[in-house]
């Protein structure tokens, strides 16, 4: 069943250099539609860096060079003709620290839409409700949409940030340790939400939390020092890893 799913992103031989320092040493892996893929590994292993190559956020750092190809819907996002602005509408991103804009909750959610030129109040209202419902926070905030997003708790802010990404209707959502700044209850709520979302989106998740990866992901990739060590079904990775490094890491022997 899982194998019938279409591949939406395939990265081939991706190298990334910070100046001369090679942070990614030829990563080749693909991501399937409507699955949650977890990227795990110790700090500095390159998993976040790799995540950020998928929507070209690394382009913003001067001195970064990237080689290799990343195909999204059979188009190389590193082709010279790629419009990074359009790309980031298809591949949304949620960061480790909740970073809502210091505007109202309503404005936060529709920021992308409004800037894309949507003016119709009904469409905007509807988008706000749908996105906040998908992010499982509609009931909490529906009566205070005009209040500042900064007045919410960290977990609620993070869900507003996710709603903000959903409102743009991306195909893929990248999450860079989205729950590491949150308490366990908020984390659990966000995990459940991600499980709901995967019917409609492809989700790629960087996490330090091994339980989180094993609870919600379909496939798991283990990174170490810029290399992709092992990539397989989450069950296989956690119960029956092929590589010794993977086993050491998930059993807590290092990292």
């Amino acid at each position: 069943m899982a194998d019938e799913r279409k591949e939406i992103i395939s990265a081939t031989d991706v190298h990334l250099f910070y100046g001369r320092n090679e942070a990614l040493k030829g990563i080749t892996m693909d991501f399937r539609e409507n699955e949650i893929t977890a990227l795990i590994g110790p700090s500095g292993c390159g998993k976040s860096t790799f995540l950020r190559t998928l929507n070209r956020m690394n382009d913003l750092i001067p001195s970064v060079t990237i080689t290799g190809t990343v195909m999204l819907h059979d188009k190389n996002i590193y082709a010279p003709s790629t419009d990074t602005v359009a790309l980031r509408k298809e591949v949304g991103m949620v960061f480790q620290q909740p970073n809502p804009f210091p505007f109202s909750i309503y404005d936060n959610v529709i920021y992308g839409l409004r800037l894309a030129g949507v003016r119709d109040r009904r469409i905007l209202d509807e988008a706000v409700e749908t996105s906040l419902r998908q992010a499982a926070i509609w009931d909490t905030v529906k009566d205070k949409l005009s209040e500042s997003a900064l007045s919410l708790s960290g977990g609620q802010q993070q869900r507003v940030c996710i709603a903000r990404v959903l409102a743009v209707k991306p195909d893929v959502i990248l999450l860079d340790e989205p729950t590491s700044a949150l308490d366990p209850i908020s984390s659990g709520q966000i995990e459940n939400m991600l499980l709901e979302l995967k019917d409609e989106y492809t989700i790629i998740l960087v996490t330090h939390n091994m339980q989180q990866a094993s609870r919600i992901s379909d496939r798991t990739a283990f990174f170490l020092q810029g290399d992709l060590i092992e990539y397989a079904d989450t069950r296989t990775i956690f119960l029956n890893p092929k590589e010794k490094e993977t086993e050491d890491y998930i059993s807590g022997r290092f990292g």
Partner: peptide, 27 residues
């Protein structure tokens, strides 16, 4: 204004100028 706000804008598919004009300057 924190860099995470710039990242948030760009990651939402805003151009750099839109991010500056609609997020960073208002803040």
């Amino acid at each position: 204004i924190s860099g995470s706000q710039r990242e948030a804008g760009l990651a939402l598919g805003l151009s750099k100028w839109e991010t500056v004009l609609k997020i960073i300057i208002p803040e």
